[in-house]
Amino acid sequence: MRWKWQYLEEKFMQGLMLLSFGLILLSLLLILFTIVSKGLPSLSWEMISQTPKGGFYLGKEGGILNAIIGSLYLALGGTLIALLFAFPLALLLNIYLSQRLWADIVRLSLDILWGIPSIVYGAFGFTLMIFLGWRASLLGGILTLALLEFPIMARAMDEVIRRVPPDLPRAAYALGSTNLETAFLVLTRQILPGIATAILLAFGRGIGDAASVLFTAGYTDRIPNSLFSPAASLPLAVFFQLGTPFPEVQQRAYSAALILTVIVLGVSLTSRWLSHVLDRYSIH
């Protein structure tokens, strides 16, 4: 009779697992369905081509162009600055410091930075800005986002570089290239797909993050015209405008949520496609 219990247990656990897996898939579909079914009816040309009129919280006219442009500025700026630091760090970490205690410490610090909640980055950025005498501004938001994206990007690149077969740099050294040339001319080409993925991963994280830009970039009805003016952003457009009692204003929140979701999912899919395309420059 013993085999029967085993069989039952097996079937029971398999059922539970399928149930769990189904639950996860169902939640994903439900989220997407909610966002699309609320966002699509509220989306119009007016919505994406105009800034809100009469204040974003009370005004019933206008759209969310301020948040779309603001978010793109913030995330592009943050990603660019993060890239300037993350790329050389990840590359040279593996060239100059491979297999050493210090490299381990650097990686551990990056992992720790990755785990710091974005609200803490926001508080830290805000403290720095008060110290420097800045107000909520595009630049403040960009720098805080750069801080948030830097460890994500650096660590993602580092993981890719570590998977490069060691024969590749050895071959480059054998041909007489220096460490730097090996890093920037040979390794870079090999990890191009990984670099693209890392950049887009960080960009997606940056554009969707609300807690870090809440105090640092502020919110405004206008499109920022300088680095020192405040900037609106899509996640905050969702957050602020969902809380109003006016259905017309809530429509703007739903549209912003839909646009944000489309951007983020688009970025995720693009990164898969791009890493596929760039893969042809790598040696396998």
Binding site: L30, I31, T34, I35, K38, L201, G204, R205, I207, G208, D209, A210, A211, P235, V238, F239, L242, A253, Y254, A257, L260, T261, V264, L265, V267, S268
Partner: peptide, 11 residues
């Protein structure tokens, strides 16, 4: 994992 947290909030 890429879906921003405000989207989860709306849901």
């Amino acid at each position: 994992a890429a879906i921003p947290s405000v989207i989860y909030g709306v849901w």
